[in-house]
Design a protein around this nucleic acid. Structure first.
Lengths: 344, 344
DNA sequence: TTGAAAGCGTTACCAA
DNA sequence: TTGGTAACGCTTTCAA
């Protein structure tokens, strides 16, 4: 069933059917009705490929995210909200999962696949493996937006202000009297993990807390990674009295390790997550964390991308600001630990 | 940059370039090299829309899932694994999030959008709002696969054996001596929730446990829904000593309510989840649950769809079997509760 | 083995 | 206001 078929059944030309489909105002209302009747009757829907070819536009954008590992709902939210923002603006979304971990070049393959499909722009929300891509594309005038990428100049990049949330978190811990503050970091080959790490060091400096490299454990940013990382921190001769985590999933993993040793977050050791997943309010104890909302980020990414596609680089460089969320997994250091730490 | 441009730069016809692109064996190796050199040099990639139009095939399938609410990672896993299976077979995936809750017809819109894009088949993994669709499409010969849908005859449908897992779960609870077994059900306008409910009743019957409607709370299958539902069950004059939940997220919500009243799952009341999210092993206590793996289901769905597209209805009707997973959120009923319950 | 040319389904220009 | 027709970028027959 194609436009020609509709045309002959309605007794008009293909051009007229096309006009009806595209709501061109100049068509005789009678013809409009006749054509629409036929269209409904036979259930005709225009062929997208043909339209795209003829129009030279696809009204499609690409979204590349990391493979979701360990059931982290963060990327699911990104996808949902990006797609929703796109739909509201008449765009469709092509999604790719980049295997950023085992194959950094995979993201290039994803971009190529998308460009074959003539997407009008791509959002790369992989948080950490996009440098190569950025270098390749920032000069060639194809609309592409990154988030939290570590390169400066021309590429569209939503800056992520990790510091804002971390600063408050560290201040909060310092006010409780914590001096041995540890960090469960994600793998530092992810650039976003390097950025977080640097932001934390800066936050510590600003709060006047001594930063101790030995209190940092690098682990996967997953449930299991967090559990393992926390085990390493606890086996230190002098474990930290407070631990920040690179994300909530790792924090949940850490909680499990604590429990296995009869320690409770908030009472025996302070724990701060990152992301503020819906889940964070449901852990035991509810997780003090730093909000990094995928929904807002996704919306922002689409808006920036849309502006780029439409040539209005209005506020092309935007920033997402993280925010401290106080719940119950933080508190004063335990006396026992407090005593030992000044001896250092 | 198009095929004509490549052709003239390489000094061959467009037909030859096309053959090179598509690895046709009959092309002179010298020409192949020449053409490929040009292609690499200018970074040419064929236009998908044009290819699809000329070939009459898109090698694209659609996947419709429910809007992910409350950060449930279940659907994220489905998307990831479906996409992976598709890619391995040379297919691309178009994804839609159906707003099944507030607008049951939205899924029809999704299907239409996908068919405009000439997808070769669609998997509808919404678990509960697809009856209308199924009726409409099961006769028209378009490859479409459902999962756990409640209609019998012609539509491709992956049956979900909820009973297998539930039966073991109920047996497990009965062996502990539970007689007052409650259920935190999802909203029963989701057909998958009705199916689960029916399966549970059957499982209870088979285990010889009296089913008591008053011990069922209908709630959203979310963290918050589970928390609220559990509160309702606990406020009953005689609360259940064990509660099954429609999914893990609801179970995690339920745990929070328990804790707020100083009750602990496994010790004071037995709790069984559903899905076996990675998270389930990280709750406190680790959640006894029923495995319903999105990855396997997604793979199955794609395979069935592919068979349908290729016309081989090999094993067109497949079944996914749920499985009981024992962890630590279940145990013997507390003596206090045990005493009261026979008095009924 | 190669090239010319006719499609694929649609849009959009130009005449009428 | 309508219709004829040339694109859009590619594939695929048919001849050579």
């Amino acid at each position: 069933m194609n436009i020609g078929e509709i045309a002959s059944r309605a007794g008009v030309s293909r051009a007229t059917v096309s006009r009806v489909i595209n709501d061109v105002a100049t068509v005789d209302p009678k013809l409009v009705r006749r054509v629409k009747a036929v269209i409904n009757e036979v259930g005709y829907r225009p062929n997208f490929q043909a339209q795209a070819l003829a129009r030279g536009r696809t009204h499609t954008v690409g979204l590349i995210v990391s493979e979701i590992s360990g059931g982290n709902p963060f990327f699911a939210e990104i996808i949902l909200h990006f797609e929703r923002a796109a739909l509201e603006n008449g765009y469709e979304v092509l999604i790719s999962f980049a295997d950023t971990e085992t194959n950094p070049d995979h993201v290039v393959t994803c971009v190529n696949r998308m460009r074959e499909r003539q997407v009008e722009g791509i959002a790369v929300l992989t948080f950490g493996m996009e440098e190569a891509l950025a270098k390749k594309y920032q000069t060639m005038g194809f609309p592409m937006v990154f988030a939290g990428a570590l390169f400066g100049t021309r590429a569209l990049n939503i800056r992520i202000n990790y510091l804002s949330g971390l600063r408050e978190a560290v201040k909060h811990l310092a006010e409780f009297g914590h001096t041995r503050i540890g960090y469960l970091s994600g793998r530092l080959f992810w650039s976003s993990m390097r950025t977080r790490y640097e932001a934390l060091r800066k936050a510590m400096k600003l709060a006047g807390v001594v930063f101790d490299k030995d209190l940092v454990a690098e682990c996967d940013h997953t449930l299991e990674g967090g559990a393992q990382g926390m085990a390493r921190l606890l086996s230190l001769p002098k474990p930290p009295t407070a631990v920040l985590c690179c994300n909530d999933m790792a924090a949940i993993g850490a909680i499990k390790t604590l429990r296995a040793r009869n320690l409770e977050a908030g009472r025996d050791i302070s724990l701060v997550g990152f992301d503020d997943l819906p889940l964070a309010a449901y852990t035991q104890p509810p997780l003090t964390t730093i909000r990094f909302a995928p929904s807002e980020l996704a919306k922002m990414a689409f808006e920036v991308l849309l502006d780029a596609i439409q040539g209005k680089s209005r506020k092309t460089n935007r920033e997402y600001k993280t925010q401290f969320i106080l719940r119950e997994s933080t508190g004063a250091p335990r006396v026992k630990l407090r005593k030992t730490s000044p001896r250092q």
